[in-house]
Computed example of a mutant assay.
Amino acid sequence: MTNPTVIQNATIHDVADYFLDKGNMGTEEAITHLKLQKLVYYAQAWYVALNYGKKLFDSRIEAWMHGPVCPELYNEYRNYGYKEIERPTSSPEFIDGITEVLESVWEVFGSYDGKFLEELTHSEDPWINARKGLPENATSNKEIKIDDMKNFYSDYLN
């Protein structure tokens, strides 16, 4: 039996698979598309804050009406709508620093549903700053800035 490759440079799909593997269908830990988007966002945000602005993955996160969204991930999972997403066939393994951040994000946010996480992101500066000047229900593809994530979430660490 071969050992799985340990990932040093994560992609958005690696991070999504990690969280999907944690989810339990039919429980509060089930993962919908909305919840997945927010978990991936928080993984990026906390990784950036802990690693002085270094990104966990390179995919763009935008300030959509329902909170932070990675369009690349949206296109992959949008057909699920509000239904729970099943677990992937395998889960990625990361170097320790990445795993610690992902585990922490799961411990803090994993038991919340997507709507709660949406409301939470709506109260935080990175999403608010990216949507400045937009009506509440306006569509947008404005990117949430990495520096805004780093500055906002770093304040929690101090």
Rank of each mutant, 00 (worst) to 15 (best):
residue 49 A to L: 11
residue 37 Q to M: 12
residue 145 K to L: 15
residue 127 W to M: 06
residue 48 V to Y: 00
residue 39 L to G: 06
residue 117 L to G: 08
residue 144 I to A: 08
residue 44 Q to Y: 04
residue 54 K to F: 04
residue 3 N to A: 13
residue 39 L to H: 12
residue 49 A to I: 05
residue 131 R to Q: 09
residue 33 H to S: 15
residue 80 Y to M: 12
residue 43 A to E: 04
residue 21 D to K: 06
residue 85 I to F: 03
residue 119 E to T: 03
residue 21 D to Y: 07
residue 7 I to K: 05
residue 141 N to M: 05
residue 53 G to V: 04
residue 29 E to K: 07
residue 44 Q to W: 05
residue 116 F to K: 00
residue 35 K to W: 03
residue 57 F to P: 01
residue 143 E to W: 02
residue 125 D to T: 13
residue 95 I to H: 07
residue 12 I to E: 09
residue 98 I to K: 03
residue 40 V to K: 08
residue 70 C to M: 08
residue 64 W to Y: 01
residue 62 E to D: 12
residue 78 R to Y: 04
residue 154 S to L: 14
residue 124 E to L: 01
residue 69 V to S: 04
residue 70 C to K: 07
residue 59 S to A: 15
residue 75 N to T: 03
residue 64 W to F: 01
residue 40 V to T: 10
residue 30 A to C: 11
residue 85 I to L: 13
residue 104 S to I: 01
residue 11 T to Y: 00
residue 137 N to F: 00
residue 61 I to A: 04
residue 148 D to H: 05
residue 137 N to R: 15
residue 3 N to M: 08
residue 30 A to Q: 11
residue 49 A to K: 13
residue 89 T to C: 05
residue 92 P to V: 03
residue 22 K to D: 02
residue 16 A to E: 04
residue 143 E to P: 01
residue 24 N to C: 11
residue 39 L to D: 12
residue 87 R to H: 06
residue 151 N to F: 11
residue 37 Q to R: 09
residue 107 E to G: 02
residue 43 A to C: 06
residue 71 P to G: 09
residue 158 N to L: 08
residue 122 H to T: 00
residue 81 G to W: 12
residue 150 K to L: 12
residue 27 T to D: 13
residue 5 T to I: 05
residue 33 H to Y: 00
residue 61 I to H: 07
residue 122 H to V: 03
residue 101 V to H: 08
residue 10 A to V: 09
residue 81 G to M: 04
residue 29 E to Q: 09
residue 87 R to L: 13
residue 130 A to W: 06
residue 156 Y to P: 02
residue 44 Q to T: 07
residue 81 G to E: 09
residue 3 N to I: 07
residue 92 P to I: 03
residue 132 K to H: 10
residue 42 Y to A: 06
residue 153 Y to R: 13
residue 49 A to E: 05
residue 105 V to L: 07
residue 98 I to E: 10
residue 103 E to S: 15
residue 88 P to I: 01
residue 30 A to P: 00
residue 116 F to D: 02
residue 84 E to P: 02
residue 117 L to C: 09
residue 37 Q to S: 15
residue 21 D to M: 02
residue 51 N to A: 06
residue 139 T to E: 11
residue 130 A to S: 06
residue 89 T to P: 12
residue 142 K to Y: 15
residue 86 E to Q: 09
residue 110 G to L: 02
residue 75 N to P: 13
residue 17 D to Y: 02
residue 43 A to Q: 04
residue 109 F to A: 06
residue 3 N to R: 11
residue 115 K to W: 13
